[in-house]
C-alpha cells in the first residue's frame, strides 16, 4: 500500500475509533477520558514537511470536532503537538540517520525508551492543552491537573497496546536511497 493510501485509511480509522468506540466507552471515572486519535500525528512519516504535518493535524482535530460539536477544541492541541513533533524527533533520534533508514516513528526505528518518551511528552502536551481549554470554561484547576495526569496515563496504555497489537512493518532502507 502506498504511503498516501495508508495514511488516508489511518486518518479515517482513528477518527471513527475515537468517536464511536472511545467516546462511547462508559466512563471509567469522570477523571479519565481515553484519547487515541492523536496517534495518527505521531505516526506520520519522518520526512513529511512541518507545515503539511500541521495542516493534517488541524484537519484531524477538526474532523473530530465536527462529531463532538466542539469546533476548535481538538484542533488546537493537535496543531500544537504537530508543531512540537520535529523538535522532539531531533532530540530523541539516537542512531545516526534513523530518519532516512526508516519511514516513520515507531519502537523499532527509534528504540523503545526514545519512542516511549516521544509518545509520553506529546500525549501530555495534547492532554494539558485540551483539558486546559475545557477548564477555562469552568475553572477548577486542581481538577484539571489530576484529569490531565490520569487521562495521560490511560491514553499511554492505549498507545502501547496499539503498538503491540498492530505491528507496523518497517522496512529498513539504506542510506544510499
Amino acid at each position: 500500500m502506498s504511503n498516501l493510501v495508508k495514511n488516508i485509511v489511518r486518518f479515517m480509522l482513528f477518527v471513527l475509533v475515537q468517536v464511536f468506540v472511545l467516546n462511547h466507552v462508559p466512563p471509567l471515572h469522570h477523571l479519565v477520558v481515553p484519547y487515541l486519535y492523536f496517534l495518527f500525528i505521531l505516526w506520520l512519516p519522518f520526512k513529511m514537511g512541518r507545515r503539511s504535518v500541521m495542516i493534517l493535524a488541524f484537519l484531524l482535530g477538526f474532523c473530530l470536532d465536527c462529531f463532538t460539536k466542539t469546533y476548535g477544541l481538538h484542533s488546537a492541541p493537535c496543531v500544537l503537538i504537530a508543531y512540537f513533533r520535529p523538535f522532539l524527533i531531533n532530540l530523541l533520534i539516537s542512531q545516526e540517520g534513523a530518519e532516512t533508514n526508516y519511514n516513520e516513528p515507531s519502537i523499532k526505528s527509534m528504540g523503545f525508551a526514545q519512542y516511549f518518551i516521544y509518545a509520553t511528552v506529546l500525549t501530555f502536551i495534547h492532554h494539558s492543552l485540551l483539558f486546559f481549554l475545557q477548564a477555562l470554561q469552568s475553572g477548577g484547576y486542581l481538577y484539571f491537573l489530576i484529569k490531565t495526569l490520569l487521562s495521560t496515563a490511560v491514553s499511554l496504555i492505549l498507545v502501547l497496546l496499539t503498538e503491540l497489537l498492530f505491528v507496523r512493518k518497517q522496512r529498513f532502507r539504506t542510506n544510499t536511497v
Binding site: 500541521m54 488541524f58 469546533y71 476548535g72 488546537a76 496543531v79
Partner: peptide, 16 residues
C-alpha cells in the same frame, strides 16, 4: 503554527 492555532482558538471562542 500561530495562524492555525489562532484559527482553532477563534473557532473555539466564537462557535462554542
Amino acid at each position: 503554527f500561530l495562524i492555525l492555532m489562532g484559527v482553532s482558538l477563534v473557532m473555539l471562542i466564537n462557535f462554542n
